[in-house]
Design a protein around this nucleic acid. Structure first.
Length: 378
RNA sequence: GGGGAGAUAGCCAAGUGGCCAACGGCAACAGACUGUAAAUCUGUCCUCUUACGAGUUCGAAGGUUCGAAUCCUUCUCUCCCCA
């Protein structure tokens, strides 16, 4: 069944919306945060905790990484990523467009596609819009992303414009390939196109209009949160949201901090993903309603209060700050497991609360209060 | 009792006349992290100072020298081998 989006309510004082995305692997209540599971795993936690404690509704996988390891033949043999990793709710796969950006030294971009040098064994691989769609068929994500170039920041306007047009041409090739091919595992796969255009309003407008015309089941905004000032990120998001169709989910790729997420929800974003809660957790940083804690800091050394008084994860009430600090200093694996569980649980509670407030119609005022504390350094 | 080696900043450790406030590593302290080449990376780390810079260091005391962690003398301590 094609993906559907049911809009439930729009906040009266902002552009925030609450809705329900429906896929063949179940419902996603928006706004939603999607934990990143690049290599087929959300690092440091089990699928059981992802379902039971975090209550994630959809996770990501990555085309480039999964293609290199374990490789598509294994994924096909397994019957797709859901069966391979035991995650039976929706999966979204990123196309490798971000690796075009992040693996800057190991790739060459041409009209045909991108030649990557594998970070695993040094071998060369050409990723084209067509091959990336084929790989995503083999991975079997419910939502598959168009192959794009995520431009860096700063980025010359001239380059951003050329890149944007190439991303648009690549999008058409992605759409054609998806049209020509069938899902391999018996359920529908939705292609989301990606708006580019760096921090240039004219380009963003042009790109959003181009993407909007495609009538995709959902639309994404890429090329942000790559180092540009927050006001640019919000301005571009706001502009693009005003152009993208209202009756389709909008996905802001790679964002972000708790504050970024609430502010972007206010602009009309429905879906988010970011490595921040998982990566920063492994590096000792915990996000809470009262602010941010670096668990390695000396101040927690003999603080035997629970990890997060307001936290809803089982780790929040079970472990103490002093103990978690000890685990980080001792480089114990449990430290990363606890921190990841905490952060993902917090991110999911954050968007859940936002959703409740949107449905109540009180999102904007609540958000303005919440944002004051979220970035505090504890 | 005899012979040998050594004492360097919180720890380990390099340095053996000027380029030394002293390589490295660890620990400690702080920071970064936004579609994951990340259980990673960066900074600080004798004292005072935001910094410039100043002051005091290389077991202790004395000496040689324009100049000493580095050379000499004595002392203290540690380790190893033989009896």
């Amino acid at each position: 069944m094609p993906l559907t989006f049911q809009l439930q309510n729009t906040d009266p004082a902002s552009n925030a919306r609450a809705g329900i995305v429906s896929t063949d692997h179940g419902l996603i209540r928006t706004p939603i945060f999607m934990p990143v599971g690049t290599a087929g795993t959300v690092k440091a936690i089990t699928q059981q905790d992802l379902v039971g404690d975090v209550k994630a509704e959809i996770i990501l996988g990555n085309t480039y990484h999964l293609y290199l390891r374990p490789g598509t033949s294994i994924l096909r043999e397994a019957g797709g990523l859901h069966k391979f990793n035991g995650w039976h709710k929706p999966i979204l796969t990123d196309s490798g467009g971000y690796q075009v950006y992040s693996l800057g030294d190991n790739r060459k971009i041409k009209e045909e596609g991108v030649k990557f040098q594998s970070h695993v064994d040094g071998s060369y691989h050409l990723f084209s819009p067509e091959s990336v769609m084929d790989i995503q068929r083999e991975i079997g994500g419910d939502i598959v992303m168009a192959f794009d170039e995520c431009t860096p920041y700063p980025c010359e306007k001239d380059y951003a414009e050329k890149s944007m047009h190439m991303t648009h041409r690549w999008l058409d090739r992605c759409i054609n390939r998806m049209t020509e091919t069938e899902p391999l595992y018996g359920y529908h796969q939705s292609l989301f196109p990606i708006v580019q255009g760096s921090v240039y309003p004219e380009l963003r407008k042009q790109s959003a209009e181009y993407i909007a015309l495609k009538g995709a089941e959902g639309n994404a905004i890429g090329g942000l949160s790559v180092g540009e000032p927050h006001e640019d990120m919000y301005a571009m998001t706001d502009l693009v949201c005003s152009i993208l169709p209202k009756d389709k989910p909008r996905y802001l790729m790679g964002v972000g901090t708790p504050v970024n997420i609430l502010e972007s929800i206010a602009l009309g974003i429905d879906m988010f993903d970011c490595v921040m809660p998982t990566r920063n957790a492994r590096n000792g940083q915990l996000f809470t309603w009262n602010g941010i804690m670096n668990m390695r800091n000396e101040k927690w050394k003999n603080d035997f209060s629970v990890l997060d008084e307001q936290g809803e994860s089982y780790v929040d009430q079970f472990y103490t700050k002093a103990y978690v600090r000890h685990l980080f200093h001792a480089e114990e694996i449990l430290a990363m497991q606890i921190a990841t569980l905490h952060n993902l649980n917090f991110y999911l509670r954050l968007v859940k609360k936002a959703r409740e407030k949107i449905i109540e119609g009180t999102f904007a005022t609540w958000k303005n209060e919440a944002v004051k504390k979220l970035a505090t350094r504890l």
